[in-house]
Structure formats: C-alpha cells, structure tokens
C-alpha cells in the first residue's frame, strides 16, 4: 500500500511524540545525575561527573547491585526453565483442565503487584520464613514465570508439531529431538523471555519492597533515598541501572546474530 504524504507525516509525528513521551523524563534524570547542584533545575549551570565516581566506588551501591543482580539472575534462570516446560505442556500435549490451568497460570500478572507482595509477605510470615532477598526471588517468580511461560508458549504454538514428529521418525530420541529441533526453534522465545524476566526483576519495586526483608535491591534503595537523604547519587545510580539494562538489551540483540554466524561457519 502506498501511503500518502499526509499519512506519512502523521506517522512520523506520532512516532516522535511517543519517543518524546517515553524518553524525555528519563533525560531529566540523566541531567540530574551530571548536574553539580544538589537539586535539578534547568538550565543546568555546571556539569560534574563526580557522582558517577562516587557511585562506582561506593560499597553500598556495590552491595545493592550484587543483590539485584543475583536476584534477577536466579529469577531469569528459574522462570525460563519453568516457562519452557510449561509452554511445551500447553502447546504440545492435550490434557484435562489444560485450558483452565493455562488461565490460572496467567492470573498473577493481573493482580496489583502491591497486593501480591503483601499477600506473599503475609504468607511467608504465616509459614515462618524470614523475608530476605531469597524470598524476593520467590515473589518475583510468582509474577514473572507466567510472563516467560506466555512468551515461550507463543513461540511453541507457532511451530508445527510435525517437526518434532519428523525428527523422531528419523531416529531421534526424545533428548535429541529437544536438542536438534525444539530448542533451536524455541530459542528466540527463550532469549526474549529471559530478557523480560531479567529486566522485570531488575527493575521491580513493589514486590521487592514487601518481600526483601532486611535486604535491599537497587529500586528499593532509590526509593528510600528519594524519601529521605536525597543526594545526586540517586539519579546517578538510577542512570547506571538504565545503562546496565541497555547493555543487556544490546547483548541480547547481538546473540541471535552471533549464533547465526557461528552456525554458518560450522556448516561451511
């Protein structure tokens, strides 16, 4: 379809408006992180990068990063593995109550996270578990596993089950079928599910707030510092967190590209 000049202009405008709405607020945090003055005001009179040095050398920040990182990594690993098998169960096998189970599994996404966090905290207390970052991992999993399951399931539904049957027909054991056919075909879904899991856990605040107990993740600390004891370290750490996410995203985008290249050199 040929788009008219007016429509093209409208589409560009729309795109720009979206980008501005999404990224301009982030830009203000960026400015705040490199402003010399204690509170942000425009125009920024003097720039300084000293808070970046401060943030990178701070032991507190390092601890926070480690906690957040371990939490997110564990959440990613577990939610992707569980999501992978869950998605296969939905897409490949028909069993009683499958449809019902499918809906129940997705339900946690629709709970307000604060309510979910509160519910989990009360539950942990009831069964006598002291909240720490480990309980936060469980809380994140409750909310994130449905998402990874959904993402992988979409991919699993979109490929022909006959591919797996054909592999078996040509002599593959169950494990070989998984390795030669199922995994490579689900790989894009698995990578994006993992990415989602990591970023959602890395940036999660409401669930962490209720369930980390004495431990603290990056978003929690940012919030606490905002409420009391603000310093330009807050936007600086915030920006570093954004950079870390962006870096991860870039790596994730590069992975399929690198795999493809490796595969083509292997076959050559």
């Amino acid at each position: 379809m040929k788009t008219g000049r007016f429509l093209t202009a409208a589409l560009y405008l729309y795109g720009i408006a979206i980008l501005v709405a999404l990224y301009l607020p982030l830009l203000s945090v960026g400015f705040a992180s490199i402003s010399k003055s204690r509170y942000l005001s425009f125009p920024v009179r003097r720039y300084a990068f000293e808070w970046y040095g401060e943030a990178l050398s701070s032991g507190t920040v390092a601890d926070l990063v480690v906690t957040s990182l371990i939490t997110a990594a564990l959440v990613t690993l577990v939610s992707v593995v569980v999501g992978f098998f869950g998605a296969l169960a939905f897409a490949r096998y028909s069993w009683r109550y499958r449809k019902l189970f499918q809906k129940f599994v997705l339900l946690p996404i629709f709970f307000p996270q604060t309510v979910l966090g509160l519910a989990l905290l009360m539950w942990f207390n009831a069964i006598g578990i002291v909240p720490s970052w480990k309980t936060a991992v469980v809380a994140h999993l409750v909310w994130i596993t449905p998402i990874t399951t959904l993402i992988i399931a979409i991919r699993a539904y979109s490929f022909d089950p006959a591919l797996e049957e054909a592999a078996r027909d040509m002599g593959c054991t169950t494990l070989q079928t998984l390795k030669e056919v199922t995994l490579p075909l689900l790989a894009p879904g698995i990578v994006s599910a993992g990415l989602f899991a990591f970023l959602l856990s890395w940036g999660n605040f409401p669930l962490s707030l209720f369930t980390t107990g004495a431990d603290s993740t990056l978003p929690e600390w940012l919030y606490a510092k905002m409420v009391s004891g603000y310093s330009p370290l807050v936007p600086t750490v915030g920006m570093l967190s954004v950079f870390a996410s962006a870096l991860l995203l870039l790596i994730a985008i590069a992975i399929p590209f690198l795999i493809n290249r490796a595969r083509s050199t292997e076959s050559a």
């Binding site: 049957e165 078996r168 027909d169 040509m170 002599g171 054991t173």
Partner: peptide, 8 residues
Amino acid sequence: ANERPTCM
C-alpha cells in the same frame, strides 16, 4: 517410532 526402519 525412532527405532522403526520406516520413514514418512
């Protein structure tokens, strides 16, 4: 199935 000498 994977040990049958047939193919489809």
